[in-house]
Design a protein around this nucleic acid. Sequence first.
DNA 1: CGCCTCTGGTAAAACGTTTTACACGTCAAA
DNA 2: TTTGACGTGTAAAACGTTTTACCAGAGGCG
Lengths: 343, 343
Amino acid sequence: MKRKTISIKDVARESGASLTTVSLVLNDRDQRISPATRQRVLQAVDRLGYRPNRLAQGLQSQKSGLIAILVPQLRHAFADAYFGELISAIHDHASEVGYKILLEVARPEFIKSNQHQELFDRHFVDGILCCGVTNKDAYLKEFAGAGKAVVVVNNYLPAFKLNHVCCDYKAAGRMAGEYLLSLGHRRIGLIHGAHEVQTSLDLQRGFEEALHTGGVKLPASMVEDGLYTEEGGEAAAKRLLKRNPGATAILAGNDKMAIGAITGLKDTGHRVPEDVSVVGCDDMHQAGYCDPPLTTVHTPIYELGKRACERLMDLIRGRVEIVEEIHPVNMTYRKSASPPKPE
Amino acid sequence: MKRKTISIKDVARESGASLTTVSLVLNDRDQRISPATRQRVLQAVDRLGYRPNRLAQGLQSQKSGLIAILVPQLRHAFADAYFGELISAIHDHASEVGYKILLEVARPEFIKSNQHQELFDRHFVDGILCCGVTNKDAYLKEFAGAGKAVVVVNNYLPAFKLNHVCCDYKAAGRMAGEYLLSLGHRRIGLIHGAHEVQTSLDLQRGFEEALHTGGVKLPASMVEDGLYTEEGGEAAAKRLLKRNPGATAILAGNDKMAIGAITGLKDTGHRVPEDVSVVGCDDMHQAGYCDPPLTTVHTPIYELGKRACERLMDLIRGRVEIVEEIHPVNMTYRKSASPPKPE
DNA sequence: CGCCTCTGGTAAAACGTTTTACACGTCAAA
DNA sequence: TTTGACGTGTAAAACGTTTTACCAGAGGCG
């Protein structure tokens, strides 16, 4: 009882119409089909349970109906709240517009064997969303310039002209800096993510500018690398306070590092925020549930993923040539930052 | 300069051979091709940068080269260590054998509009791996019986005959029970995940059997639902100890709940393991890094994902009709369980 | 010399769609 | 009555592969 796959031809036979007619009905292509014929065709489709073959459609239309999400090969990229949020957003929006998503990990072998190119060349996907890229991802150059339906999500590369939609991390740094200054802090540290990530640099730059405007310096001894992880943030906070026992506030480049920093601070006998204020960046779900709840720069990650997906669709449909979007951010005030204690 | 897509036809022209010859060379289909011709064809391929079109290949071979991973619509399924591990494993193995993966979320609309069926009917994918299913997922019935390349990952449904590869959760429960008994515990509680998940029931059953054999009962008052989450585990532990102040040990159905339970216990003034021992299940990465490090039942999740993928390939290639695999588990001893304190 | 087999190769069908170009009325206007 | 326009429908080409069936020539053999 191998149910042979039923094709449009079977529907044609069953309904007594021609191939073309069936296709026209199914795609609402023309009003030319009389209601009676239309009816017959639709009934036949129903009776047979016909479903068009995507491969054939794709071959004809030169579209696969898929987009790829390219994520970096991190220890646990698929178990990360940040990437999870992004993937959810992309999946949600893509399904809405009838697209499906392919998951790819940008491993060295993957890139080296040019599979990122093949995704296009072999007609696997109609577009690619690149998440978690760094300035070291040289292969992105091959996607540069107009014409390729590729969007970098929440980052960009200064070296190449790539489509991107990104949060305003410079503003994020500035806002955090201004806020800490306004609370009265003067000895402020920074735990950044990684210097090969452009947004991390932007955050630092914005932060420095704000401090500078307020007459405060950010010496190198007050800057630590937290590797974007909780453990990294914890270690960085400990190093930072060891070198600068007088520090009263820290900005962390993401919430994970901020939470790690809080752990580290508590661990070394500092109260948060009484002794040291901590400000994060992201505003992930968990930011509201740690102790103390995290004051953080809210970056609209879900929204961003959605927009990136929308813009990618625009590129695919040829409605647009270039995508360069910067999204505003804003502060979320909770409990992890307060004025410094009086000396 | 719209680079027209180059087809096998172009290669044929360029190399002076016929369509068929090119195809034969490319697929190593026959030894009949002379080395000279072969050479010419390969050079042409190289010169033109030809890449076969997957859609055309798929149409011809009736294979899409894709498999779908179906995950449940959880709060943050894509940010969960358990699913992350599974997805990584599947992705790794699938890439190895030249398959790509499609990500799908089993939302109610998705199921209601029969898109899970369409994945097959419309030739989107050659097979499906279902993760995180529960006994309530009635739609799985449509995948039951032989013939469909569908594998349930790390669970199974007693109601339907479905392909599955699963850890031995009954043994897990038994081992944890025996271990706690061997330490000398007598008043032992359980925090399970959800009663609509078969493996959760199995774990409980194995646990009860072990306790029973040791002459210990597991009264209903000692069983709480932890919802598979940290927060749930924390609340469950608190409820459990409130109702049973004399409890000296708890088994949690997964590591997240176990870690939550530890938090809850500490929070209410219990030391772990001195006052209350806690045993988890999963052995996720974080289990080794919490405080105290978690004694837990090791379930080989990565390995399991890989095997599930392998078995799915067997189904797709028709090498096998039915898949039913149970994987053994074992204890990982760390610091969260110890003998109860003497009265 | 006629027949057979082997070697290297090709033409054409098939996969299941969409789209383009044409065909066959019928009916109104010229 | 012709002409053209319209309404309804269809045959055939195209998308890019793989596969099946066939062919031409060369050499071996009786």
